[in-house]
Design a protein around this nucleic acid. Structure first.
Length: 462
RNA sequence: GUGGUUGUAGCUCAGCUGGUUAGAGCGCUGGAUUGUGGUUCCAGAGGUCGCCGGUUCGAACCCGGUCUUCCACCCCA
């Protein structure tokens, strides 16, 4: 007997009910992507390793799933490399392809490869799985979906504003009230690093600062010192630890800190414009919040940075993120193409909606009508009736065998079918069929010659 | 990648300091109910206790390894 089958760590199977819920989220996101003028593209699930490697930092490289070469790949490795047992030098010799780690880098590759066919500004969206060789936790998988929307070839800040609106539109539509869209600007972080004289340690500085909410001021400072940032520099950055109040107040504070930094002041004015414009257009259910500690690990961001936190009380990592990257395509040889984009974390949004019980009940219904089967003659008549209902766009099915009516009813009940049709010998001779409402238990006759009457009634109840 | 945690029936979990045929609830199957589900009653099926190895007269329980789950780091959606 074969061993019990299993699936790899961090992967999942999805049942019909789960797929229905996932599709509901995807459809909602897709709908809003399209109303904002984005067009879909798809890219391969695996890319050449060199396309991905080095784009996400050392940590990212470690988390990229590598694909072994085909054929007798070991024999092609030279003896020196082989016997060195060094993974870093051996890996490129035995693996030339890797699974996609996110959708942004493949998109940048796409833009460069298709630059002559693309009409800029190019607004694309992409909903596909990505893979990370991470250690799984709750809301953290090795295979998960990202839903990305990006614009390239337009450096207007209106894009940033639109992305904030887009986040708001999607979360409002999903019934997820109180999502917080946190915003910051990489230029502000650069400016701060410049002002405190720790420019070369920008990444370490921001990574440490990012943890302020989680580990507190003292520990952040300890980490900064460990990374080689001087005490003097840290004390100059002190106002950052005391950023409170409204966005306007925080911006004023930043202006005084960053007065001597050109890049920093640019960041402040960009943020100011985005925030005031969002203020004017207004948001439905989400809130926009300036958060100077927001860093985001990905190194390619150069301007605005976004991150979306689930409503208060839900313990979940960020459910979306994004930002502006002025030179992502530069690494593939296409200069001066500015891009901005955001991403929705489908799997985490799912968990949040589930926790808050926000999935519509209608998703549980996968069949509108089930016709019971009473035998050969009745079955044939039923099939005709069911076909008629299907042509009207109803999800209708005929129970395939004429087993006990009780059993057929139980099946209907478990499938959550709202209406059951009975078309037996008696009904057939009378030229009618009986419809039972499974919720109320009421039964009603309809003429077989006028199924339209039944269809109308059903549709009016949806 | 580091440290910890978890795994017993389809599901949620009991199972004493190691002791004989491993339990419950829910679910499932059949019947009460030969054209009426969701309630009720009765009966029944279902487990090499994650896997491999070790200690022991004896292991679900102890030890080692491995896989999985979840958690804290790292990082991130």
């Amino acid at each position: 007997m074969a061993k019990k089958p299993s699936i790899p760590k961090g992967t999942r199977d999805f049942s019909p009910a789960e797929v229905a819920r996932r599709n509901y989220i995807i459809q909602t996101i897709k709908k809003h992507f399209e109303t904002y003028g984005f067009q879909p593209i798809e890219t391969p699930s695996f890319e050449n390793s060199e396309t991905l490697m080095g784009k996400y930092g050392d940590e990212g490289d470690r988390l990229i799933f590598k694909i072994l070469n085909s054929g007798d790949f070991i024999s092609k490795v030279d003896d020196v490399t082989y016997s060195s047992k060094d993974s870093v030098s051996l890996t490129p010799k035995i693996s030339e392809k890797a699974l996609r780690y996110d959708l942004t880098v493949p998109f940048a590759r796409y833009v460069v490869m298709h630059q002559n066919e693309i009409d800029f500004p190019f607004k694309r969206y992409q909903i596909q799985p990505v893979w990370r060789a991470d250690r799984p936790q709750k809301g953290r998988f090795r295979e998960f979906y990202q839903c990305d929307a990006d614009v390239v070839g337009a450096d207007s800040l209106i894009q940033e504003v639109e992305f904030v609106q887009l986040y708001d539109a999607v979360f409002t539509d999903l019934g997820l009230k109180g999502a917080t869209i946190k915003i910051n600007n990489r230029k502000i972080l650069s400016g701060i690093a410049e002002v405190i004289g720790a420019k070369h340690l920008l990444v370490d500085f921001t990574v440490a600062l990012d943890k302020l909410d989680k580990i507190g001021e003292e520990k952040v400072k300890v980490e900064m010192v460990e990374k080689g940032i001087s005490e003097g520099a840290i004390s100059k950055a002190q106002p950052l630890f005391e950023m409170k109040g409204t966005a306007t107040e925080q911006l004023e504070k930043l202006k005084s800190i960053l007065a001597d930094s050109e890049v920093g002041m640019l960041g402040v004015s960009e943020l100011e414009e985005i925030i005031s414009t969002v203020d004017m257009v207004g948001l439905q259910s989400a809130s926009l919040q300036l958060d100077v500690t927001l860093a985001r690990g990905l190194n390619y961001y150069t301007g605005a940075i976004f991150e979306v936190a689930a409503p208060e009380g839900v313990k979940m990592g960020s459910i979306g993120g994004g930002g502006r990257y002025d030179d992502l395509t530069g690494i593939f040889g296409l200069k001066d193409v500015s891009g901005v984009g955001i991403s929705f974390g489908l799997d985490r949004i799912y968990l949040v909606l589930e926790e808050l019980n926000l999935f519509p009940d209608s998703l549980d219904t996968s069949l509108d009508v089930l016709c019971l089967n009473f035998g050969k003659k009745e079955g044939t008549a039923s099939l005709k009736l069911v076909s008629g209902l299907r042509k009207q766009g109803l999800r209708a099915d005929l129970y395939p065998t004429d087993t006990k009516v009780q059993k057929q009813f139980k099946y209907a009940d478990k499938r959550g079918v709202p209406y059951v049709i009975l078309l037996g010998d008696q009904e057939l001779t009378d030229g009618k069929f009986v419809v039972k409402n499974m919720k109320t238990g009421d039964q009603k006759d309809y003429s077989l010659d006028a199924i339209q009457e039944f269809v109308e009634k059903l549709k009016s109840e949806f």
